[in-house]
Simulated scan of single mutants.
Amino acid sequence: MTGVVEAKLAELGLTLPEVVPPIAAYQPAVQSGVYVYTAGQLPMVEGKLPCTGKVGAEVTPEEAKNLARTCVLNALAAVKSVTGDLDRIARVVKVVGFVASAADFTGQPAVINGASELLGAVLGDKGVHARSAVGVTVLPLDAPVEIEIQVELTSA
């Protein structure tokens, strides 16, 4: 049976991907009490990065914004892997977004809006969160974007 959150994803033309396997020594998500913390999620699609490079150089800000959406889909898959049901999300508490940026690129907040806007579209008020958008020199595998999220769960 598909829950409300996954039905909303389907309504938006999206499907929850398989959990991206770790590329190092960590778990994709860990639950501690009523919170789930995801590892940084790259914009992997079927085991591969759709593109690599720096935002503002090899990758356009709009491409990066779409990659941030992919990252958050991967993060939701990681959350589901430990909770069994995305409908257990009481709220998204925090989103941290990293943008591999060209030296003169300063549009990191607009890139990470891809993740924030998708969480809002899928979860409504439960998707409103605190956030950081950080420009960095390089990310793993030369990914343009990486996203991690923290969610609070319902007690059920």
Rank of each mutant, 00 (worst) to 15 (best):
T2H: 07
T2I: 10
G3W: 12
V4M: 10
V4F: 08
V5P: 11
V5A: 15
E6C: 04
K8H: 08
K8R: 15
L9D: 08
A10I: 12
E11Q: 13
L12G: 00
L14W: 02
T15P: 01
E18K: 14
V19Q: 05
V20W: 00
P21Q: 10
I23D: 04
A24I: 07
Y26L: 08
Y26V: 06
S32Y: 02
V34Y: 14
Y35N: 14
V36S: 11
V36I: 13
Y37K: 11
Y37N: 13
T38R: 13
G40R: 14
M44N: 03
V45K: 11
E46P: 02
G47S: 10
K48I: 12
C51D: 03
K54T: 07
V55K: 02
G56I: 13
G56Q: 10
E58K: 15
V59A: 02
T60Y: 05
P61W: 03
A64M: 01
L67N: 03
R69V: 03
C71S: 08
V72S: 12
L73K: 12
L76D: 06
S81K: 08
S81N: 07
T83L: 12
G84R: 09
D85Q: 05
I89A: 12
I89M: 10
K94G: 02
K94N: 13
K94T: 12
V95E: 04
V95H: 01
G97D: 08
G97L: 11
A100R: 07
S101T: 02
A102E: 10
F105W: 02
F105Y: 15
T106I: 12
G107P: 03
G107E: 09
Q108S: 12
N113L: 10
G114F: 07
E117T: 01
L118M: 02
V122A: 06
L123F: 05
G124A: 00
G124C: 00
K126F: 00
G127I: 04
A130L: 09
A130F: 03
A130V: 01
A133T: 02
A133C: 09
G135H: 01
T137K: 02
V138N: 02
V138K: 06
L139P: 04
L141V: 09
L141F: 05
P144Q: 05
P144E: 04
P144D: 04
P144S: 01
E146Q: 13
E146M: 09
E146V: 10
E148G: 07
I149C: 08
Q150C: 08
E152R: 09
L153F: 09
T154G: 07
A156E: 08
A156H: 09
